[in-house]
Design a protein around this nucleic acid. Sequence first.
DNA 1: CAGTATCCTTTACGATACTG
DNA 2: CAGTATCGTAAAGGATACTG
Lengths: 122, 122
Amino acid sequence: MLQVTARTKEEAEMCPVRQVLSQVMGKWQMLIVLSLEDGALRFGALKRVMGDITQRVLMENLRKMERDGHLTCTVDPGPPVAVSYALTPLGREPLVHLKALTLWAAGRHAAVTGNRSRYDAP
Amino acid sequence: MLQVTARTKEEAEMCPVRQVLSQVMGKWQMLIVLSLEDGALRFGALKRVMGDITQRVLMENLRKMERDGHLTCTVDPGPPVAVSYALTPLGREPLVHLKALTLWAAGRHAAVTGNRSRYDAP
DNA sequence: CAGTATCCTTTACGATACTG
DNA sequence: CAGTATCGTAAAGGATACTG
């Protein structure tokens, strides 16, 4: 398998795979990627679509992903200003895998719920 | 797209997709799944393979994944005791997608590093 | 509307010591 | 060797208020 393990924390932070993955696999990043699949969204719309995320946290994640080149930020000076975020080609690449995982998770929810009950019950 | 968004925190916690995904997409869970791909490992060996994880955190994650049915825990009473962990068929299912993501991340490391420098520089 | 700043809580994690 | 318990720290996140 690929090298994703490390012996120290410093080594882990330098792991190339982890560095790239962390920008799309996190709880919020993944939701952002999926939310932008069908096209650009303005900040407010994106926040509304995601629902349970605060403005501050959404901004943080958007900036990190912009920095890594996963999405672009386009400003239309208004007034009022309109800022929209869109996935770059690079940002679209993991989409297929993330969707596959999401689909798998959806299909396995019943099984997992059953396993949890069985584990907790006795 | 599938429904992975939520309007409240409670709604998010009940999201079937998020519930299942959280057991394999977390930083540690993903490393555990990948580490067990080639077969069962004893606790100590698994800890050594992963390197930068503490005993406590590894135990926590193993228990959560065992609860969800992603892996089994087999005890061979010694002495000394030997406890080995192995993926279940359910636990193997996400492997293909996780490996695809890992492979993608490895291939894009250079691009992302470049993007970061460009973003930070000016 | 988009963005920043501040404060506070919670969660994840690390380190270490102890037990069968 | 595997597992538990305790304590402390650091990171993530939530709430809210304020600005152009």
